[in-house]
């Protein structure tokens, strides 16, 4: 009985998210275009996330290199560290870690912001002021997350590889040009393109779930907290599921 109720709630929620996504797809290309709000959100979501994303990327590149070194030395393939780190970061670690940090920072902030706007009637006030709040708040934020996450992932990958370069040089000597030569000669188109494309989906997920949870927030401040929390949890789970699906699809079409 309890399982039935849980299943029903899960299906209900999935249906509502699907309807919300459908509304986004229906509204995003129709006028009135909230261009200035879109750019404002790009600044908040993209530019202001850069320090956190950059720092995390740097540490991941550095630590990953330091952790790999002992095993690589044992096998006598120490010179292949840049290649292995490069492929790992660009194919998987960079996109997934950046997306999860992005979900934690931006997903929760969107969920809390829209949730608090909902419970303090700011969304109603917007509607009364001749504004379509869905376009102004949801469409602008979802587009901003969708386009900003790929940019952040690219930057994070570069910073992570720079961290790796420093990591390689802690216990050895590798020149700048040799390091990058090793990284790029071992990377192929199939490593970069699918990894880059999936980040658009990750960004979309973070935006749409954060907005959905905030937009449907209720029960006062408790509801706002719950919206922020569940935005992170649901978008993180969906990021992993999407990643799994993308890997299967790219395998099927020969990009694996």
């Amino acid at each position: 009985m309890a399982t039935d109720t849980t299943l029903k709630k899960f299906l209900d929620e999935t249906g509502r998210i699907a309807v919300f996504t459908g509304r986004f797809l229906n509204e995003w290309f129709r006028p009135r275009y909230e261009i200035s709000e879109f750019f404002r959100q790009c600044y908040i979501i993209g530019y202001k996330s850069l320090p956190l994303i950059g720092l995390t990327g740097f540490i991941i590149g550095l630590v990953m290199t330091m952790q790999l070194r002992p095993s690589m030395v044992n096998y006598g393939v120490e010179s292949q560290i840049p290649a292995i780190v490069g492929i790992s970061i660009i194919r998987e670690i960079g996109p997934i870690i950046t997306a999860l940090i992005f979900a934690g920072k931006i997903g929760s902030s969107i969920g809390a912001e829209l949730g608090s706007m909902k419970v303090t009637e700011q969304i109603d006030a917007m509607e009364v002021s001749g504004t379509n709040p869905f376009k102004y708040l949801v469409v602008s934020r979802v587009l901003a997350t969708t386009f900003m996450l790929p940019v952040l992932v690219l930057l994070s990958d570069c910073i992570a590889l720079y961290g790796s370069y420093l990591g390689v040089n802690i216990k050895g000597i590798t020149s700048w040009s040799l390091f990058w030569n090793k990284v790029f000669t071992n990377l192929i188109y199939a490593d970069i393109f699918p990894a880059f494309i999936k980040t658009f989906f990750f960004g979309f997920i973070v935006g749409i779930i954060g907005c959905y949870k905030g937009y449907h927030s209720s029960k006062g401040t408790e509801g706002v907290g719950r919206s922020a929390n569940s935005s992170v949890v649901v978008s993180s789970v969906l990021i992993f599921i999407t990643d799994l699906l993308v890997v299967q699809v790219t395998d099927l079409i020969g990009y694996g």
Partner: peptide
């Protein structure tokens, strides 16, 4: 409706001022 709303003012119980 938007045209009509321009002629109606609404004072919300919670004020609904935009925090940002």
């Amino acid at each position: 409706l938007d045209e009509l709303r321009a002629r109606i003012g609404f004072l919300f119980q919670s004020n609904a001022l935009y925090d940002s």
